[in-house]
Design a protein around this nucleic acid. Structure first.
Lengths: 334, 334
DNA sequence: CAGCAACTTTACAACGTTATAGTATTCAAG
DNA sequence: CTTGAATACTATAACGTTGTAAAGTTGCTG
């Protein structure tokens, strides 16, 4: 059997509650008592039972991270950093993969997953703001990644539209005129795909380049999605001199397909992405992309969430944070 | 306040324990009673309190996954699959990043992390078998990835040596004679680096090619580690016509550095890796590598761990499982 | 040296579940 | 219609912690 507080109390000759007080840094404890208890703890090798603590205190010291798929590099890096940063504050991260499935997202908001965590960092992929708002429970919730300015919700977001416009403009400024965009449908206007598309269209408009629906190709946000999209473009004979993959893996998949088919990058077709995953610096050619400020997103979303959890942030309405972005110009689109 | 079993019991006109019995599929419950309880549960929207359940039952329905770094693609894919597969059996996965730090690995074996989980899938990076054996607690533990045949420990492993030999032999058979190996020191003989090195040396010996220490370059198992290693090789003028990156990101980093410096791959130098991460199929050139059978590793290690946790696997000594591997020949080393 | 405030420690209840050890009820067999 | 086994249900005690409220101790002030 594991050592309990009771054993420690007995060994130190104090009450159970005094041991608890020592553990919780209660102010009024005689120094000699504290040391006696600490000694007993050390001698017996006592470790607090986290489950009992959670039951009694109602806190789990875990935060939940809901994302579509941990094997996607962007989310893997995000989760990895979040875990490291959260650990500094004594929190663990429990990850839930939604696969963009509405049922799973809903379950993450209200089900057992919620119970296990003190607060949620949530990437809504299939739900809209209203659904999130109506199903979120009482515990703190910070939305991640979307550019949603709902006054009821805390949101930490990257500048999807502006950054997408910037990277598109970069292509246009280098003389490209037929920029294919991969990873969204023409009708998308919300969510990361839609917002980045908006940025794309804004940049075109800005440069006086007409929007051509033929250049828009939907695709799963995976490498093969990018490859398939390029294959489709080439097979239907659509002319293009650049590809904007709405995230890096799409762009890298697209680039792979271009190169396999003998299309020169950036000679014939320039390629840009979005996210600046580690791989983008090491592909051949290296990938021009947008760094959305992941470090800032991680730190600030966690800070906001912990402020809510620990009752420091009292703002009634939603707090909105937007990270800086940076254009990373590399070989695929100089 | 949340709805408790007591509320359900009152609503259904039965005792607390009967509600518990219904929830736990106890055999002897009258059908009518069961339905009354179910109805009350549905009406009140009752959800079991997992923390209380854990405290009383001693089970958390979580398994721990200890790895070096979740942002590494191999581990990200592993974690992602494990979560999906574990969910099928009603388990969640809690990830701990050790960064190969002995203190963190030790803490994962004995500390709070252990408490939160019913069993551990553990990738030992800085600890040897004896340390693991002496510090593992009472709960089930399955080692991952190493080829350790200690009779006291459960291990699910890939065929590090044989597979590394196979991919090296492939290089030798295609006529390469100066195969640089990146990611281990000459003295490594244990752990994934050492075992893969052993395979490398075995393949050389098999082909009658002398082992040259100059061709061995240590490096962190990251892209930049591979790039730095190649830079070092080139700068010190060591002749080589192939690079074996001991994992895929090393190989991809190495390949990037070669291409940046104008070395043709595979024309001048062939490159092979190990792991077959998703990216290996989409790099340019695509990467010849070894697929270590991750799906099998995930499924069998989880099955073994759950068998231990749920008391089905009674074998006193360690169970050893070895996954199949497959050579994936692609453009970087045809 | 009484009185009061500041400290220090404690007993007991509570968190919401499952385990133990029963008590009722039903029903077939004698 | 009695017995005993099978079935159906329940009261009570845990699990190990923190919260509440109060009791006990000290030391200072008047």
């Amino acid at each position: 059997m594991a050592v309990t507080m009771n054993d420690v109390a007995r060994a130190a000759g104090v009450s159970l509650k005094t041991v608890s007080n020592v553990l919780n840094d209660y102010e009024y404890i005689r120094e000699s008592t504290r040391q006696r208890v600490q000694a007993a703890i050390a001698e017996l090798g006592y470790e607090a039972n986290l489950t009992a603590r959670s039951l009694r205190s109602g806190k789990t010291k875990m935060i939940g991270l809901v994302l579509s798929d941990l094997s996607s590099p962007y989310y893997a890096e995000l989760a990895s950093r979040l875990m490291s940063v959260a650990a500094e504050s004594g929190y663990r991260v429990l990850v839930e993969q939604s696969n963009a499935d509405p049922a799973v997202e809903l379950a993450a908001l209200r089900g057992p997953f919620r119970q296990l965590t003190d607060g949620l960092l949530f990437t809504p992929l299939s739900m809209d703001v209203e659904e999130v708002e109506s199903h979120r429970g009482a515990k703190p919730l910070v939305l991640l990644g979307e550019h949603i300015l709902d006054p009821r919700l805390d949101v930490v977001t990257m500048q999807n539209e502006v950054a997408a416009a910037a990277v598109t403009s970069h292509l246009l400024e280098s003389g490209r005129r037929r920029v294919a965009v991969v990873g969204a449908g023409i009708d998308d206007t919300t969510g990361s795909p839609g917002l980045r598309m908006n940025g794309y269209r804004a940049a075109l408009a800005d440069a006086g380049v007409p929007f051509d629906p033929d250049l828009v190709v939907p695709g799963d946000w995976r490498r093969d999605g990018g490859a398939d999209a390029v294959a489709a473009l080439l097979e239907r004979g659509t002319q293009f001199d650049a590809v904007f993959g709405l995230n890096d893996v799409l762009a890298l998949g697209a680039m792979h397909e271009l190169l396999v088919r003998g299309v020169k990058v950036p000679g014939d077709v320039a390629v840009v992405g979005f996210d600046d995953i580690d791989e983008a610096s090491f592909s051949s050619p290296s990938l021009t992309t947008v760094s959305p400020g992941m470090d800032e997103i991680v730190r600030r979303s966690l800070a906001l969430l912990l402020d809510r959890i620990e009752g420091r942030e009292k703002t009634a309405g939603g707090v909105h944070v937007e990270s800086d972005f940076a254009l990373k110009i590399r070989e695929s689109a100089p």
